[in-house]
Design a protein around this nucleic acid. Structure first.
Length: 595
RNA sequence: GAGGGCGUAGCGAAGCUGGUUAUCGCGACGGCCUGUCACGCCGUAGAUCGCGGGUUCGAGUCCCGUCGCUCUCGCCA
């Protein structure tokens, strides 16, 4: 097909270009036909330019203009005209000019749209995903995909300038147990054997360290066969990073430097040169989660010692079971009335995380506490008000439950309160490090300890003698990076000692034989002079989502899957031919339901 | 595996305690319009009210089941 190729883009032309002869290619964004005169908003990735088919246009051009419909892809040849002052559109970058059309060509036509591009009343997400190629044309998607590109580009530039090598690792690897469910790929050449898609390149990057590439990164695709969430897809992208001869401080500093520069470059946003740090237990106790949004305070406060003296059933039950009693002070405000109905909503938020209920008192005049449970608190009013730093009109909310449920439940109340109080500054990016994580947690179902993070993280030195005797108290050399309440990176200093690594496997209920067959390649590598090393892996999708002020990761992925792990555009996953199954030595166990 | 929300024309929505022909905006189609920029005006078509069953003289509306989407818990080293 012969056509006039663009000489400029639809975002380029300005007043200074008046009189220029230009060719534009793009899509018909709007088409206003006034009978004798057509105004067409032509759109491409770079912007929108108004083109005009005026009264003196040739008949042929006018005829084509009549034919145009939304999203036709066209080529326009014309002369840049300055608009009369009264017709300048200040809302458009190109609003001071228009293109007077000399010739017009339809490059391709477009069927009636399933939804309007760039309309405020957005189509439902599922429909957007089915017609993703149309959705991607919207300004929002275009901006977010551009942001993502710039983010990744800035990361590559920063790290490359600091001696990091970008190294690819395989996506067909050995399946390793623990952690998330693997995606498996059957082997054609070896009947009954499978590759797995990496949940992360964890072991491979550690072996790269043994291989002497002491500063490595990769924009790595990771796969985890678990249920999706707003901030979680089964396929996602990490900045995988690892370094040799480093301590925790080196890794944290590397990431701080990276994001300080990248945020300045990409977001024009100035981050502090080092990020706040919280221990895991402080984060849990004060914010109720291991990924606190620290853009606002509303701390949780432990009142266990005061509660001991209070003859309130829920408190006494919790204490008897060695649980916790925590409270949060909801400040008096004009924005939010703490009605019974609203407190009921807060209670529902708490119950999701296992709290049985939410007790509350209002701070009245002269330090009087008012509510159904106030009678139990008589004599302890001052202690509670002082501990909570509460003032008249505030509402104090209590949860009594086992420690973790208590934290998580009241944390959920804190989050909801902050949203409803409207105290979250959407334009701020508040990073913080969470450090000193427990290395193990006990799996009640399985009846043994397992790695809270993964099995390759170094225990902090002082706990190494007591790993086996008291796994629950072992802190690891682990760190998470949290941004605005989302976990955006996770890393650790790694074990590089075969014997220590084997001890960890044993604590996690792997026999030496199992460990050898699953992780033998790592242990073998560690027999040949492994360097001390450590690293981290920030989630690219999640970070871009936050930077773009979105709450769904799908908004920053070109072709995401839906909550049901289906791609509505291509309808994957799908059935395959028997021949394909046969080649892979596979039989489908369940009779296939008819589609 | 569990819970909340949603499902009405191509799209976004309204439709009250059940009542006669299911409403509105956008879009589509036809017509008019020479300065619009979410152009405007006139007209036309377009809906098995997600699906199945039930209650009722009568169901978009009530009940039961089911499917899909979405958010969340579990899960996600």
């Amino acid at each position: 097909m012969e056509y006039k190729q663009r000489t400029v883009t639809c975002g380029a032309l300005r007043q200074e270009d008046e009189g220029k002869y230009v060719v534009l290619n793009g899509w018909v964004h709007r088409n206003r036909n006034h009978g004798g005169i057509h105004f067409i908003n032509l759109r491409d990735r770079y912007g929108i330019t108004q083109i005009v088919v005026g009264e003196h246009a040739r008949d042929e051009v006018r005829q084509i203009a009549e034919e145009l419909r939304l999203e036709y892809c066209i080529a326009v040849e014309g002369i840049v005209r300055k608009r009369p002052d009264s017709m300048i559109n200040p809302n458009m970058d190109t609003g001071s000019i228009e293109v007077d059309v000399q010739s017009l060509q339809i490059l391709s036509r477009c069927e009636p749209l399933p939804f309007m591009i760039d309309e405020e009343s957005d189509a439902k997400e599922d429909l957007r995903l089915r017609y993703r190629y149309l959705d991607l044309r919207s300004t929002g998607m275009q901006n977010r995909i551009r942001l993502r590109h710039e983010f990744v580009k800035a990361i590559r530039e920063h790290l490359s300038a600091r001696d990091f090598y970008e190294i690819e690792t395989p996506t067909l690897i050995k399946s390793t147990p623990e952690g998330a469910r693997d995606f498996l790929v059957p082997s054609r050449l070896y009947a009954g054997k499978f590759y797995a898609l990496p949940q992360s390149p964890q072991l491979l990057k550690q072996i790269l360290m043994v291989g002497g590439f002491d500063k490595y990164f990769q924009i790595a695709r990771c796969y985890r066969d678990e249920d999706a969430r707003g901030d979680r897809q089964l396929e996602f992208t990490q900045l995988d990073l690892e370094m040799s001869f480093v301590t925790r401080e080196d890794v944290l500093k590397t990431i701080e430097d990276l994001f300080v520069e990248v945020f300045a470059k990409v977001m024009n946003y100035s981050l502090p040169t080092s990020f706040r740090r919280l221990s895991w237990s402080d984060a849990m106790n004060t914010y109720g989660v291991d990924k606190p949004d620290v853009r606002y305070d509303l701390p949780l406060v432990d009142i266990g010692d005061i509660a001991e003296l209070i003859q309130f059933g829920a408190f006494q039950t919790a204490l008897a079971e060695k649980g916790s009693i925590k409270a949060i002070c909801a400040p008096a405000t004009d924005n939010l009335a703490y009605s019974r109905k609203y407190i009921g909503e807060l209670e529902e938020a708490a119950k999701v995380y296992g709290a049985k209920g939410l007790a509350f008192v209002k701070v009245g005049k002269g330090g009087v506490l008012e509510s159904g449970i106030a009678k139990f608190l008589v004599g302890h009013e001052t202690a509670i008000i002082e501990r909570m730093k509460a003032s008249e009109g505030d509402m104090i909310l209590f949860i009594a439950a086992p420690w973790k449920k208590c934290c998580n439940s009241l944390g959920a109340v804190r989050t909801k309160l902050a949203r409803d109080l409207n105290i979250i500054d959407k334009n701020r990016f508040e990073f913080c490090w969470i450090i000193d994580f427990p290395l193990f947690e006990f799996n009640e179902e399985a009846g043994h300890w397992e790695a809270a993070h993964h099995m390759f993280s170094m225990p902090q030195a002082q706990y190494i003698p007591t790993l086996e005797s008291d796994p629950g108290s072992v802190k690891g050399d682990l760190y998470d990076l949290v941004l605005n309440g989302y976990e955006v990176a996770s890393g650790s200093i790694r074990i590089h000692d075969v014997e220590l690594q084997k001890r960890i496997f044993r604590i996690c209920n792997f026999t030496d034989e199992e460990a050898e067959s699953r992780f033998g390649f790592l242990l073998n590598a560690f027999r040949y002079g492994p360097p001390p090393h450590g690293g981290i892996a920030p989630g690219i999708d999640r970070m871009v989502m936050i930077m773009a002020q979105q709450t769904s990761i799908k908004e920053v992925i070109a072709f995401p899957k839906n909550t049901a792990a289906v791609s509505p555009m291509d309808d994957s996953p799908s059935y395959v031919d028997d021949k394909q199954l046969d080649e892979l030595h596979l039989l489908i166990k369940q009779p296939v339901k008819s589609e």
